[in-house]
Each structure stands twice: as structure tokens, then as C-alpha cells.
Computed example of a mutant assay.
Amino acid sequence: MGKKLIEQIQAAAPMAKIVLLAAPQAAEYYPHIGFEQYHSAWLLRSNKPD
């Protein structure tokens, strides 16, 4: 299902970039469908308590 969704996004918006946040257990899967791994990301959370 996920691969089909990505294909639909690419067909509808061929110039769009897709940023994926994945669980470590799934990291081996995404290169098989064309994703490139980046080793840094930054997150700024709101000031609201969780």
C-alpha cells in the first residue's frame, strides 16, 4: 500500500519532494523503493508539554 501511495504522489506532483520519517526497523526497506538516506534531521517541538 505504501509503495502505491508514493507512486500516486509522484504521478500527481512529479516535481514534489517526499520527506520520510521512518522507524529504525523500517530503514532497510526504503532504499529498495528509491529513497536516499540522510543522516541528519532537526526537529523543533512546540513549547507545549507532551
Rank of each mutant, 00 (worst) to 15 (best):
M1Y: 12
M1H: 13
M1R: 10
M1F: 13
M1W: 11
M1A: 14
G2Q: 01
K3N: 06
K3V: 01
K4G: 08
K4L: 09
K4P: 00
I6L: 06
I6C: 02
E7I: 11
E7A: 13
Q8Y: 08
I9Q: 11
I9D: 06
Q10G: 02
Q10C: 10
A11I: 01
A11V: 09
A12H: 14
A12S: 15
A13H: 15
A13C: 15
P14K: 10
P14H: 11
M15R: 14
M15A: 15
M15Y: 13
M15L: 14
A16T: 14
A16M: 11
K17W: 12
K17T: 13
K17Q: 14
V19C: 11
V19K: 11
V19S: 09
V19T: 09
V19Y: 14
L20N: 05
L20D: 02
L20Y: 05
L20H: 03
L20S: 00
L20K: 00
L21F: 12
L21R: 07
L21V: 09
A22N: 05
A22C: 04
A22Y: 03
A22E: 05
P24S: 03
P24H: 03
Q25T: 05
Q25S: 03
A26E: 03
A27N: 03
A27Y: 01
A27K: 07
A27E: 08
E28W: 00
E28D: 09
E28C: 01
E28A: 05
Y29A: 04
Y29P: 00
Y29F: 10
Y29G: 00
P31T: 02
P31I: 02
P31W: 02
P31G: 00
I33W: 07
G34N: 05
G34S: 07
F35W: 02
F35T: 00
E36L: 00
Q37W: 06
Y38A: 04
Y38R: 12
S40Y: 07
S40H: 12
S40G: 04
A41L: 02
W42A: 10
W42H: 06
W42R: 12
W42I: 05
L43T: 13
L43C: 13
L44F: 08
L44I: 07
L44A: 12
L44M: 08
L44R: 07
R45Q: 07
R45K: 09
R45P: 01
S46K: 12
S46Q: 10
S46Y: 08
S46F: 06
N47C: 14
N47G: 15
N47L: 13
N47D: 15
N47Q: 15
P49G: 08
P49M: 04
P49Y: 03
D50V: 13
D50S: 14
D50E: 13
